[in-house]
């Protein structure tokens, strides 16, 4: 091997090494805010003030026990899980079925329905929040989890319909036809044959909607009010507001609110990353 080639090869190797080092360094710097939150949640008030960046000298769980009781974390979780789970399930069900019909039936009315469904895609939920308070109270759904569920059903229908129609278009109609010849009705064809094929799209919808609804702040604050329970975001907002400068307690709350969702993400990283895009970007 000539010295020139050798030089180029080793040069490239060093380049790759530093590049990897820089990459990892960038990622570590990116995570400093989370490091700060984690280490300070194990410290006493005075230690946070004195050495905010150091590891805790004698880690204490006191902040967590206090935050756990004061914020009633378990009940917050209950509300958040219930609302996220039911809303996402409702959205997947109503929009996959509706998308199937409007894509498969080639008539003018379904074309109209498609356009009608997309009106909402540019409407941010905050636009409908104020008038929804009127409609929800008329239906007796204001200040109930049901009201929030219906609000999300309306608010995100357009987005999920948009995801599903694109995906259903790519599924050959011959599949429907053979099932039809075997004597299956439309409902059966959809749930037995089509719905399982929509899995990548459903994954995208579940993760996207799940993240939006779980982390939503403004809508649950006004629709649930103070009587129908609090979600993790509104609950944490209230309890942290009560002790603004006791950072050790703030961080304990922050950690309690975030550990489950971060753990879920770390366990299902691949599903999160591929799922988010599988139904959205053509590939």
């Amino acid at each position: 091997m000539s010295t020139l080639v050798k030089k180029r090869l080793t040069g490239k190797k060093i380049g790759r090494g530093t590049r990897n080092l820089l990459t990892v360094l960038f990622a570590v710097i990116y995570l400093i805010p989370l490091y700060v939150a984690v280490v300070n949640s194990f410290k006493t008030y005075w230690e946070v003030i004195k050495s905010p960046l150091a590891l805790p000298s004698s880690p204490t769980l006191e902040n967590f026990t206090e935050a756990f009781h004061a914020s009633n974390i378990l009940s917050l979780y209950g509300t958040s899980i219930l609302i996220t789970f039911t809303s996402v399930a409702l959205l997947v069900l109503i929009s996959s079925t509706a998308a199937y019909i409007i894509i498969r039936r080639k008539n003018r009315f379904c074309k109209f329905l498609y356009g009608y469904a997309l009106i909402g895609i540019m409407v941010p939920p905050v636009v409908t929040l104020v008038p929804s308070i009127k409609t929800l109270s008329m239906l007796g759904l204001m200040y109930t989890p049901w009201g929030l569920l219906m609000f999300y059903g309306g608010a995100y229908f357009s987005t999920t319909i948009f995801l599903y129609t694109g995906f259903i278009n790519s599924i050959p109609v011959t599949l429907d036809e053979s099932a039809y010849i075997d004597g299956a009705g439309t409902i059966r064809i959809f749930f037995r044959i089509i719905f399982p094929l929509l899995k990548p799209c459903t994954a995208t919808a579940v993760i996207l909607m799940g993240m939006w609804i779980w982390n939503d702040f403004l809508n649950p604050m006004y629709i649930l009010g103070s009587t129908a329970g609090k979600t993790i975001t509104t609950g944490i907002y209230n309890s942290i507001g009560a002790y603004t400068s006791k950072w050790n307690l703030v961080f304990a709350n922050v950690i309690l609110a975030s550990v489950p969702i971060v753990a879920l993400y770390l366990c299902m990283q691949k599903q999160f990353m591929t799922g988010l895009t599988a139904g959205a970007v053509k590939g």
Partner: peptide, 25 residues
């Protein structure tokens, strides 16, 4: 009936909780 059963629930929720509030706004 099958078509209506599949498509109607979504459109009903969407109309009542999205389109009507949008009009009200």
């Amino acid at each position: 009936t099958h078509d209506i059963l599949l498509a109607a629930p979504g459109y009903l929720i969407y109309t009542v909780f999205m389109i009507i509030p949008l009009g009200l706004c």
